[in-house]
Structure formats: structure tokens, C-alpha cells
Amino acid sequence: MDRLKKIEEGFFRVLMFCSTVLIAITLFLIIFSILYKGLPSISWEMISQVPKGGFYFGKEGGILNAIVGSLYLSFGSTFLAAIFGLPLALFMNVHLIRHKKLVNGIRYVLDLLWGVPSIVYGAFGFAIMVYLGIRASLLAGIITVTLFIIPIMVRSIDEVLKPVPRGLLEASLSLGSTRSETSYRVFFKQTLPGIITAVMLSFGRAIGDAASILFTAGYTDYIPTSLHQQTATLPLSIFFQLSSPIPEVQQRAYASALVLIFIILVISILSRLLTRKYQRNQINF
């Protein structure tokens, strides 16, 4: 009986170890296969030029329009989401500190919103667009993506603010500062490293999502010069190029995927560096 138990434990330990390794391997397999396919076809021309005539038949040009468009879209929506998200997260943790039930209710709603698929936001954004009579544009895309990342940003910042000791709040208030001063001058500074990580996370989500902008941002071969023009985005450019039957264009899709992964990696490294830099302003308890 005892031996059987030992065998069972051993069996499951092996299984557990294997599944852990499997997850790690899958990640490396994904990155490796994109690198393997993308590296041969990436070139300076790809990332420095907009598509030229016949680009979608394998002729000259690059995906600069998509890169710049994606950056515009993500910067715009992250900025907008921060204008809404940061005050809300601070409000929940400073002003409403004594209303635990209300705060938990808001968290619940935010978690629900976080779970809503991005295609639903896309469809909703499209419905709003039709209602207001706007055409697909950078602005419509930014608004849709903002809706999509607000819950992500608020909940991430909220998680950072939660562990701040209550003593800090009391000390700040007892020195005569108003509650919003406590929010922005004390809590914000204290948790800046975490907030940067949260904002970067939202940025990463914004730049990687394709379903929400499919209807709203449109697609164009040019770099947008105003909010009312359509804009190309990296995920959609990958998607469109990959569905082309021409091998050269498909090759470019792999290269574009590489560019997108590169941007995501840069964001995560940057957020780690910035976090370290701003950690110096923190009060240690």
C-alpha cells in the first residue's frame, strides 16, 4: 500500500514537472518560430517605408504606416485611459477608503469589464460610430481601445495602491493636505514604479489587440496626419498580409510579427528599467 502511494506521488510529480516545462517550452517555441520565419525577410526597407504600388503583390515598400499607426493609436488610447484610470484608482484607494463595500463593488464591475472580449468593444465602438455618423478613423480607434484598456489599467493601478499602509494616508491628512493632494502628491509618488508597470501593461494590450480596431480604425497605406483619417495598425497588417496567397507577402507578415514581438519586448524591458529608476523616491516602511 505504501509503495503504491509512493509510486502515485512520484508519477504525479513527474507529470507536474513535465507540464511546467511544457509551458516554458511553448513560449520559446512561439518566439523561436517567429524569429526563424521573420528574420530572413526583415530588412531596413521593411520598417522605414510605407507601402508602394504593388506592395500587396510582393513589390517594394514597407510597413512603416502600420508601425507608426499602431504607436499613435496606443499612445493616444493609453494617454486617454490614464486620464480616466489614474483618478479612479486613486479615488478608490484614498477617498473611498472607508467604504469597503462600494470599492469592492467597483472592483467587481471592473473585473467584469476586463473579461469582456475586445471584439465586443469593437462592435460597440462601431455602433457608436454609426450613431454619431463618424467614419472609421484614428479617433474612433483610439476611443474604442481606450474603453477596452480602462479596466485593465484601473485594476492594475488599484492592485498597486492596495498595499499602501493606511498610516501614510493618515499622516498626510493630519498634516493638513486635502484628499486629492494626498492622492496625487503622496500616493501617486509612493507607487509610481507600480503605476508605470500598470500603464506599460495597458500600452502592451493596446498595441497588440486587433479585434477592437478591426471595425473602427480602418486601414490605409499612408501615415495618418490627423485624427479623422484612417490608420493602419501592426496586428491588422500582419493579419491581412498573412491571408494573401502570395508567398512574398506572407513572408512580410512574419517579419511584421517579428516587429510586433520586438515592440512588446521593448515595452516590458523598458517598464522594468523605469520601475527601478523611480523606486528611489519611495518611502520604505
Binding site: A24, T26, I30, I34, L242, I261
Partner: peptide, 28 residues
Amino acid sequence: WVLSIMHPVIDMLAGIPSVIFGVWGILV
């Protein structure tokens, strides 16, 4: 040390855009 490897792995896996998963799906 396993945790210190797996935490970034999980984070990165969560951060990969869905279109990349799609490309990988088509490739592999």
C-alpha cells in the same frame, strides 16, 4: 529558481498579442 524563471515566462506568454498566436498557429 524555478519560480524566478516561470514568473517572467508566464508574464511574457500573457503579453504576446493574439495575432502572434494566430501566426504561430498557422506556422506550426
